[in-house]
Amino acid sequence: MKNVLYVGNNLQQSKSNVSSIHVLGSRLEAFGFKLWYTSSKRHKWLRLLDMCWCVLVKRRWVDVVLIDTYSTINFYYALAVSQLCRLLHLPYIPILHGGNLEKRLQRNPKLSRCVFGPAHTLVSPSLFMKDTFESHGYPSVYIPNSIEISKYPFQQPSFESIRLLWVRSFSEIYHPSLAVQILKGLQDLGYDASLTMVGPESDGSFKKVQDLAKEMDVIVTFTGKLSKTDWHQLSKSHNFFINTTHFDNMPVSVIEAMALGLPVVSTRVGGMPYLVSHKKDGWLVPPNDTKAFVETLIYLFEHPEVASSIALEARKKVEGFDWEVVKGQWVGLLK
């Protein structure tokens, strides 16, 4: 098996969600690959220096470099590391995570060409991102985000009341305040509705959402970050999963909700139409549209047979994302 250097967010923080570097890295290790990781530095400049230093130090032992690539400031980490790999004649593989990477391609075509053009391969976790990059002249390999389906017991919920679950980092791009507005809209129409929001603080949005809940006079349960086991257990007492984001690629939290049996209602953005087939295994609504969310949730609540059918079809779909199915694609790429 090859030796792999994985470049990404290797921070071990109690308040942040587990990043892909930990999930994919541990699975590749279990399959027999030798992996090194960078970076665990919190300071942005130190993290960048540490990433580059690790590439330099490990260049004699590494066969390939995996680079988690996002559309925000972390794009510049990928830029620096990829150019160093080029200088050292190290093959590198960007993994395209950022749901808004298309704008990066449009705004910075020259920098994008430097990162993606000479790459050994581009790995896209969603068909949306694959199509996006190929439309800009960058072929990619589709390898979906995976889960271990055996760890996700399927349980169809009951529908005595509307019990909403939201799971993401509290960041503006995920529009957490919309979840509170949805709850308020349901309660104003006389429905018995509740909302639980699971996730860590990211950019100051958590306080804004708390303040909005107080302003709207609704009670929201905030759990902070939970382990996967804990939020999976929590999901059993809920019957809808809402995804309110402005941008998205192929969020693992939505895949997990589909595996657990929660009907998903999501904004129709980015890769979501590639993941969720509207009215078949989930429901898609326009972004930032409280009214559309409320009307959809009421319809599904009042038609539980439709909600149950959606949940069942969603489970069937995400069984195709099981690691036992996906791992062969990674092994074939890295061997």
Rank of each mutant, 00 (worst) to 15 (best):
C54M: 10
V115Y: 04
S82P: 02
V55Q: 13
P91T: 12
Q187H: 12
V4D: 00
Y299M: 09
Q12K: 14
W330K: 01
V294F: 05
P200S: 12
M197I: 13
T72Y: 15
Q12L: 10
I73A: 12
L212N: 04
I67Y: 08
R113C: 10
L234T: 03
H238T: 02
T132D: 06
A259S: 14
Q156L: 15
P94A: 09
I143S: 00
K184S: 14
G271N: 15
L84F: 05
P176W: 11
S16I: 11
W323M: 11
M1P: 03
V18L: 14
F31M: 08
G185N: 05
S309W: 05
G204R: 08
W45R: 04
T223P: 03
L127R: 12
H43P: 04
P144F: 00
Y70R: 11
N108A: 05
A292P: 08
Q155F: 02
N249F: 10
R86L: 10
A30Y: 06
R163W: 00
L333S: 13
T69W: 02
A311P: 06
L66F: 15
K110F: 07
F301T: 06
L84Q: 04
S140Q: 04
Y6T: 02
Q181L: 06
V294E: 04
D131E: 05
F75V: 05
L297Q: 00
P287C: 07
L96R: 08
K291Y: 01
R107G: 00
K317C: 13
S169I: 00
F116H: 01
P287E: 03
L165Q: 01
S20E: 15
S235Y: 00
K236R: 15
L127K: 15
L46E: 12
M216Q: 11
L178W: 06
F241C: 11
K207L: 09
T72N: 15
F170G: 06
Q187E: 10
D50Q: 02
L189S: 09
V167A: 15
I147W: 08
T296K: 08
K151A: 13
Q181R: 15
L186H: 01
S112T: 06
Y274E: 09
D63L: 14
S135W: 02
Y77I: 07
E215C: 08
H175A: 15
N249C: 10
V218E: 07
H43Q: 09
F241A: 11
R47M: 05
M216Y: 08
M1E: 10
K280S: 11
Q106I: 14
V209D: 04
S235H: 00
S177P: 10
S20D: 15
R104L: 12
